[in-house]
Amino acid sequence: MNIVAATDFSTRSNRALRQAGLLVRSPDAKLHLVHVVDEDQPTELVRIEEREAQRMLVEQIAAMPELQNIHCYPIVVKGHPFDGILRTAAAVDADLVVMGAHRKQFLRDIFTGTTIERVIRGGKYPVLMVNNEAQRQYERVLVPTDLSNTSADAIRIGLSAGFLRDDRTSLLHAFSAVGKARLKTSGADPSIVSGYVENERERAMEELSKFLVANGFDGRPWALRVTEGVPMQVIARAVSEEQPDLLLMGTHSRTGLLRAFIGSVTEETLRSVDVDVLAVPPLSHEVQISESASSSL
């Protein structure tokens, strides 16, 4: 496995480096530590920052216990952070990109997104956002699914990478009871409303079961949770109640103004939860390494 761990030398990034080190399990696995230097400054200053970053990466490899006895490679590149990370991931044929949770700047994020969101949008690589202290193994994993091929791809990646344990994985599906509001407005008896919602829940559970069978996941003893509501609210409530160590989610390749103003459920989750999140883009998504700030709109 080839893992790229991005760092800006902050505490958030240090957590990501430690977690990345713990994910390196096989003797032939490689961990590439990358720092991106802003090239939009005087040339001499860029050279100074490159040398200093290289020195700091080498020191971190030597000092962090989680990075001992594994193949670590320090890499310093120039450019925008998201672009440099994606170029590095492409150069080493990464299987996973690991990043720390970044500080949010609300107005800027609406239009361009945080660095981690832009890495997810612009690449074909699963991205692990690390919020918490490093864990040798994720014990409780919550997998929100919309029953799409993208969700199935995310589950497959989670299984192949060893993130999903059969006895500690919960699948979450949010459904909408579209006629509920109309029934209430028309003055229907509460028992009729609740019966309608329960029928919709049973239908959603059947659809989830078909999804599992169609993708070969039906033999696993995962806990299934089908909940009425808006996806983001359902996810937030499940996170609060189940206290998972990791959220595993598929992402959809929406772009343009629609994404900038509405955002995806995954991006909303990245901005709002305090657990680690593994975001998996569609397997057919094309890598767009040279994305510019304007094209991210």
Rank of each mutant, 00 (worst) to 15 (best):
L31P: 04
I110Q: 11
R12M: 12
L212A: 06
V277A: 07
R118G: 12
N14A: 15
N14D: 13
K78D: 05
D245R: 02
A174K: 02
E117D: 13
E49I: 12
P81G: 11
L224Y: 01
R51C: 09
E200N: 04
D109C: 13
V127C: 10
A152I: 06
A260F: 14
Y196R: 06
G113Y: 11
L45C: 09
A16W: 09
A101N: 00
L45Q: 14
L283C: 14
L172W: 00
D28M: 13
R259M: 12
V76W: 00
V280T: 01
S151T: 12
S209D: 10
R18E: 05
T255Y: 03
G263P: 14
A90R: 09
L283P: 11
A236F: 07
D93Q: 02
R201N: 01
A6N: 05
M205T: 04
A6M: 06
S284M: 04
L159V: 07
M129L: 03
V239P: 02
E66T: 09
P126V: 09
S13K: 03
D274I: 10
R254T: 13
R55D: 11
D274K: 10
T269Q: 15
T227M: 06
E241G: 04
Q243D: 12
L159A: 05
A94W: 03
I235Q: 06
G219I: 03
G195N: 12
T145V: 08
E242M: 10
L183C: 07
G250I: 04
T255E: 01
E268H: 15
L171P: 02
A90I: 12
E286Q: 11
A279L: 08
E66H: 09
L171V: 01
R118E: 10
V193P: 13
L283W: 08
N149D: 15
T11N: 10
H71A: 15
Y125V: 08
F9T: 03
S160D: 14
F175I: 00
R51A: 10
L183F: 04
V37L: 01
A16G: 13
A214C: 08
K184R: 12
G195D: 08
